[in-house]
Nucleic acid binder design. Structure first.
Lengths: 114, 114
DNA sequence: CGGTATCCGGGAGGATACTG
DNA sequence: CAGTATCCTCCCGGATACCG
C-alpha cells in the first residue's frame, strides 16, 4: 500500500481514485476486460508514457489491477486487468457516473448557453 | 461551476470530492446538520483558516452546500449546510466508507504488524 | 513495446498577518 | 468570528530522452 494519510475509510477509498487517469483506467478495464499498455494509452489520449506507468503502478500497489507480462519474439507485451478488489469498486464508479450525468443534465437545463 | 476538465460524468462527480477536506465536510454536514465555520474548523483539526474557506467556497460554487450569514451584536456568525444536491451525494460517500472499511479490515488481517 | 530517469512548471495547500 | 492577501513549499503531471 502506498503511503497516504486518511482519517477515515472513505478517504482511503477516495485516494484509490485520486490520480488523473485512475478512474478512467478502472472503467475501461472493467468494460473492455484485459488491455495492453499501448491500448490503454490510446484510450487515454493525452496521458504521457511516464504518467500512465505511474498510475498503473499505484493501482497495482493498491491491489486494484494486475499486470501480466509476455515476451513474443523478444517483443514485450504487458496486459492489465482488474482484480476482484478492483471490480468491487465498480458500483461506486457507476454511481458516480449516474450522479454526474444527472447533475450535468440539470445544469444544462438551468443555464443554457449559446 | 468552477473550471475543471473532465471527459466523463464520473470525473465530474469525482471532482466535487477532490479537495483535501471536502468529503469530510460533506460527511459532517450530513450527520451534524448545520455547522458554523468555527465548528467545522474544530472538526477538521489541521485545516487552515484559508484552506477551509477555499474548500467551502468551491463546494458552494458546485451547489453542494449553502452559506448563511448572521450578525449578532456586530459579531458575525456563518452557518453552512448541505443542499439537496449535496445530500444526494451521500449514498456515494457512504459506499466509499463501507468499501474502505471492509478493505482496510482485510488488509489488517493480511499483513499484521506488531 | 513498455519502463525508467531527469528536469521543469503549475497549482493545491500551509503559515502568517491584516480587515470588518 | 469569518474572510482575504501574500508568500512559500511540495508534489503531481508533462516533456524528453534513454534502456531492454
Amino acid at each position: 500500500m502506498q503511503q497516504r494519510d486518511y482519517d477515515c475509510a472513505k478517504e482511503y477509498t477516495l485516494s484509490l481514485f485520486s490520480g488523473k487517469y485512475k478512474i478512467v483506467i478502472i472503467y475501461h478495464l472493467f468494460h473492455d476486460g484485459t488491455l495492453r499498455f499501448s491500448q490503454l494509452q490510446r484510450l487515454l489520449d493525452g496521458a504521457t508514457h511516464k504518467v500512465l506507468t505511474q498510475q498503473l503502478q499505484e493501482l497495482r500497489a493498491d491491489g486494484v489491477i494486475t499486470r501480466r507480462e509476455e515476451r513474443i519474439n523478444n517483443r514485450k507485451a504487458v496486459y492489465y486487468s482488474l482484480t476482484l478488489i478492483g471490480a468491487s469498486l465498480m458500483p461506486i464508479v457507476e454511481a458516480m457516473f449516474s450522479w454526474g450525468s444527472a447533475r450535468l443534465a440539470a445544469l444544462q437545463l438551468a443555464e443554457p448557453k449559446g
